[in-house]
Design a protein around this nucleic acid. Sequence first.
RNA 1: GCGGGCGUGAUGGAAUGGUAGACAUAUCAGACUUAAAAUCUGAAGGCCGAAUGGCCGUGUGGGUUCGAGUCCCACCGCCCGCACCA
Length: 845
Amino acid sequence: MSRYSAAEIEAKWQEAWDRAGIFRATHTDDKPKYYVLEMFPYPSGRIHMGHVRNYTMGDVIARYKMATGHNVLHPMGWDAFGMPAENAAMAIGGHPKTWTYDNIADMRGQMKPLGLSIDWSREFATCDPEYYGQQQALFLDFLEKGLVYRKNAVVNWDPVDMTVLANEQVIDGKGWRSGAEVERRELTQWFFKISDFSEELLEALDGLDNWPAKVRLMQENWIGKSRGIEIPFHRTDGGDPVVCYSTRPDTMRGASFIAISPEHPLSRELAENNADLAAFIAETRKMDTTEAAMEKAEKKGLDTGITVKHPVWPEVELPVWVGNFVLMDYGTGAVFGCPAHDQRDLDFARKYGLDVRNAFYMPGDETEVENDALVPVKSEKVTYIDHFADIGEVTSQEGIDATIDWFEAKDLGTGQVKYRLRDWGLSRQRYWGCPIPVVHCDDCGVVPEKKENLPVELPDDVTFDIPGNPLDRHPTWRDCSCPKCGKPAKRETDTMDTFVDSSWYFARFTAPRAETPTEMAEAKYWMNVDQYIGGIEHAILHLLYSRFFARAMHITGHLPSTAIEPFDALFTQGMVTHEIYQTRDGNGRPVYHLPEDVTDGKLVDGTEVEIIPSAKMSKSKKNVVDPVNIISAYGADTARWFVLSDSPPERDVEWTASGAEAAFKHLSRVWNLCDRIGAMDAGTKGEGDEDLLREMHKTIRDVTLGVESFGFNAAIARLYAFTNVLSKSKAGHAAQKQAIMTLAQLMSPMTPHLSEDIWAHQGGEGLIVNAPWPQADEAMLVDQSITLPIQINGKRRAEIAVPPDMDEAEVEKTALATDAVVKALDGAQPKKVIVVPGRIVNVVI
RNA sequence: GCGGGCGUGAUGGAAUGGUAGACAUAUCAGACUUAAAAUCUGAAGGCCGAAUGGCCGUGUGGGUUCGAGUCCCACCGCCCGCACCA
């Protein structure tokens, strides 16, 4: 008897697939195409279990689709620009380019043993000049269509990475990568006009039926549509009115002050002749250097001395304050305060002694409140009658809309739809990114580089000994001639946000060597991505940007109109987690230990470790298992099998040594079964052939369903169960052989190497990867006898064995004849008998 | 604060409104072995019982239904996303 040797068979079959060029995708019309894509990795240098899980899921889909007659595209590339390469260059010397390409080579080497069905001929890295040159071409086309523009803006500045961050990249006031508190700076930057697409990006979410509802909802919230109204408040001194934005004009009656942003033009204007105000504005600016501080900062304000008239009751005058809490870049930078119905406004009003006025009265509340009366705040949600608009009850968005209409009808304001989504700032003051292909000319201003001069390549001779952007201080790289007038000019030294790189790579895979960003015929054929798989952490940024890019690429003629939603189906998989093992050093600080150094809760020297519940694998906590070690210990099939088993794919899966061990044991068992069946005499007759084959067909049905619905864990459980049946089966050789070959096929998306080997051992024709997916025989799915539970008043009391086609009346008769029912009825008639064919009988007494 | 999700054995989890706990881990027992590992066989939600069996059981409390882990309402707990957004 031979032993299951993963190392041997995995290398062998990978070579066989390579030789046959099985995974190379070619454009043919004789089969339906299927494009499966996993979010491409950042080349950090090591693959981790998260990668293994992600790519294994994609591989299961890809291989299943191949077996079901699809022309599959399953590519892989590298999201290769970004800070870590520069950080490495700063920390250990060397060049980001060398570091990155070395890492790519390493990771490719670690990935290939997984036996993924990837078309490596399409591989590229975003830092290849062939790729980013096409990205520059896209940029120029976007520029021409007004999809990208330059403006002066207050931006998020990461003082550690020394670069600008998009709003989306600021999390809790900190840089998403560096974790440094983000400052606000005013700079001239490039922006994608994603905000023009707010409504479309929002509306189209409805069509993304095969996206997780959660992701759609997150995008919806991020786009943040709100309907409100802009209302001019006329100044008592005759100056330009102060226009406020509100989504709750129904609270207008409770308005008791106006607050404008320190960055509001009026604030700036007034500050010129008001030293106190100038000081206040300067102070808020200083205070507001970090977003985090802003969130916690006390609400502060300063009275400008200006007053405005209430739009509905002009006799009521409201003071205008400058408030540090008013954002200039949302709405109009000016709001009216309604302290009676807003906690923040109330805090502000109390602090500065401003009025608190009730805006509504409760139904049934007989006492009408005077305009300027101070009333207690009603905290409960109220159904209220609006005082100034004769529009009845205002309880919902419809009521608010009616209020807006009322204001518009009286010419007191203009209804406005606003979005939270801002334009996407893409300029980064970094070296290791795609250069923005424009030139600054003293005479012509900002001039796009000519397409024939693309790619604008990054210079290799740069150093990272001082912080900042090496392109800025490069002696010659900046020098160029103006594409327009030919005079000496300077290149832009900012590079693009790396999210740009990942916003269109899926399209590039359809024609990775094209001389243009895409080739329409290829894009039309392969797009959209039929199944996209990746982490939930990209629910907003990457996926929203990609959706914008697909639209922009359509407008610029790089994608067909059918591809503006690039991902037909999205699946967000959970993480791979592991327990954390820690001890304490002399000062009580935690010291972490690698799982491989811990046995039975103890270190080699016998020290007991503290076990902290499972968390995302992270190097700093040392709760990592290196896929390379797992593959060399057990083989890729074991790793693949285990990351798919146990937990539903969308949930986290905990890596445990015993689980990995169990996966390996199971594969060995299947291998041994194959051996056992191979050793049987071909003519051997046995017992229970039909039972085995029935079970086999049910397994085909269940596993097929499982694979199609991302129920990989359930599919695997079913395969375990069938293996158990097969190993105990006394069936004859022919039936057992059929069973093991089908088992191998059903396992092949998950354990392709083992499956190939079994197939070959059993004399299967060709490669299993080319074999069509087994079909469940309907006739074999029906048992000759089924067991029906009998309930009495909803509690299970007995069961009967009946033929599956027995009619309901007969089933009822049989059920009523069982001892338990006869006894319970005690001669009486049942009130009701419910027969659910094939499932259950319930006798109601 | 707003929005969303989830609560099932010791553990991961399974279950189109129809026998709750499939499958796996850990555990226990047995076989094989001088022994261990490996392998194989079996037990196992809780309580009562020698047993046939009975009662209870999917966070808590109600409801709908012949029948609820699943649907509805309220509450408790945990997780995630968003947020000086007017």
